[in-house]
Design a protein around this nucleic acid. Structure first.
Lengths: 192, 192
DNA sequence: GGAAAATGTGGTCATTTGACCATAATTCAA
DNA sequence: TTGAATTATGGTCAAATGACCACATTTTCC
């Protein structure tokens, strides 16, 4: 069965069919409902998660109980809390679905074994760490320096595809502004 | 001569004296005035910089021309724009001193050669990438979720030593609030 | 298909924040 | 040491934002 994972992995590292089969068969495939939690804040991130289909979000809870989203992870991406995963320490963040999703899970011991047996797999981790998606520097700068309107425009430019799949309140939780402010500035833009 | 760099490097990787001497002699030692620019936004980050003494800041310029600080780098830390350095592409950020500082510089080709000749050096890069100082996730979350007052308290808790060395307007530029707001909340805290 | 939940928009109001300006205090550098 | 630059604080005001609420619409899921 082709899961999309095959395509993903072949496009980044060259492996023979046997190796890929080995990797895939070490994973557990899971179907998730909308708004289902995969990793609860305070728990240890014990799996690597690859999103075959659907959309996940990684968020933290503020002091006032509100949700602040750090990442969206759509299909053909990974969702982990790297710190919690690598140190097997409690995570400060929660990972949950936005839509119904299909994911592949590798328990850490299993994935570690794969890394030993298929050294090329290490390339992936390196790429991931270096990738902008896991480097929040640019995002931090935008958050520090931009007005709500600029943040929104930036988001639309960066993730036009996500725009249609996300309720507005999640976009607001991602941008760090209130739903009210987001509605307001969208309305203002229409007029121009 | 002991520069503090010796101590730093010995505490993370074990190298013999010859190797350390080789590393140090590949560096150029520089003294910098207060508020002197090492890397200008738009330029390519051609060096690795180690701060022996003093304090640097890494910042970006917002659309309105204001300064937004991503990091402070005090003695015994590195200051680079990783992206610009590794890809030798123009940096979006500026690196400048806060105080008079003494730094060690390695031109990228020289450092690359060192990495080949002294493989243990690679460990350092790995540690750096993994270190919280270069992982902006926690910082991003605080910026998204906290009030100005909470951000300031968080800063005081995290970097009590820097507090005395930084003008308030730079702390404001780091927290993403105005100098006015910072003064106000400090004054309010005194009253309690 | 239909009930229940989630979502988007609007109104109002209080509060927070920033912009601008002046001034005193402090620090810097020659 | 002294003049110049930087820094900290305060006043005032306008604008932006969030909190709270209601309501219409859409979507979800059994």
């Amino acid at each position: 069965m082709t899961t999309g994972f095959d395509t993903y992995i072949r496009s980044r590292i060259s492996l023979d069919d046997a190796a890929i089969e080995q990797i895939v068969s070490a994973a557990k495939a899971i179907s998730l409902q909308r708004n289902e939690t995969l990793l609860q804040q305070g728990q240890i991130c014990r799996h690597k998660v690859f999103i075959v289909k659907g959309l996940l979000r990684i968020y933290g809870i503020g002091a006032d109980g509100s949700e602040h989203i750090l990442h969206f992870a759509p299909e053909n991406n990974w969702a982990v809390d790297p710190q919690s995963y690598h140190q097997q320490s409690p995570s400060q963040f929660t990972i949950a679905t936005v839509e119904r999703s299909e994911v592949l899970l590798w328990a850490k011991p299993d994935f570690d074994r794969l890394l030993q047996e298929i050294p090329e797999l290490n390339m992936l981790s390196g790429q991931l760490v270096a990738s902008s998606h896991f480097n929040n520097r640019q995002r931090l700068f935008t958050t520090l320096s931009s007005t709500p309107e600029e943040k929104y425009e930036d988001f639309v430019r960066s993730y036009p595809d996500l725009l249609a799949r996300l309720p507005l309140h999640m976009i607001a939780a991602y941008l760090g502004i209130s739903l009210k402010t987001l509605t307001r500035l969208r309305h203002a833009q229409v007029r121009r």
